[in-house]
Design a protein around this nucleic acid. Structure first.
Length: 151
DNA sequence: GCCAACGTTGGC
DNA sequence: GCCAACGTTGGC
């Protein structure tokens, strides 16, 4: 099973939204960056994902969700009324992918970004590379262990 | 609200 | 295919 980290603005979709949805799944859509999309495509059912809250008061890793589908064409790219509409996408040649995710758990406490930055052994993690804007990224077993050991 | 860093776009 | 202009991300 691969492991991942996704960024989200909690005002859009937070770990609490997942928890409140409980048995339902939430589509992870609206990703409009090719590198991030490629990672979405690599995701498989059963993969674990760290949920990172960005652009908010308490920035950091807030919980874990699970991938419950493989990637499929992101329906929002075809909807003209969606902020994620992409006129260059067609159902025959979709540009963007989505996966469905389900709540796994909320961490006992949020692990703040500055704490993650201070942990040794995370130099390779895209999240803390300077100027990084990637919203979907792989996490190695080692990085996963280091981050969660701090929860 | 600021602004550095980055990705994308489009003219040439 | 280059690169300047522009828009967006995201921490501070």
């Amino acid at each position: 099973m691969a492991k991942w980290l996704v960024k989200t603005e909690p005002s859009e979709c937070s770990i609490d939204d997942f928890e409140n949805a409980k048995d339902q799944t939430i589509p992870w859509d609206g990703v409009r960056n090719y590198q991030a999309r490629n990672f979405l495509q690599e995701m498989a059912e059963g993969d674990d994902v760290l949920v990172y809250h960005s652009s908010c008061k308490h920035i950091g890793v807030a919980g874990i969700v699970r991938v419950v589908t493989s990637a499929y064409p992101d329906p929002t790219q075809f909807r003209e009324d969606s902020p994620y509409y992409d006129p260059k996408s067609t159902p025959e040649k979709p540009r963007w992918q989505a996966v469905d995710m389900a709540f796994e758990k909320k961490l006992p406490r949020l692990i703040p970004l500055d704490e993650i930055k201070s942990l040794p052994g995370l130099d390779g993690l895209a999240l803390i590379r300077r100027g990084n804007r990637l919203s979907v990224m792989p996490v190695t077993e080692e990085q996963w262990r280091i981050i969660l050991a701090n929860a």
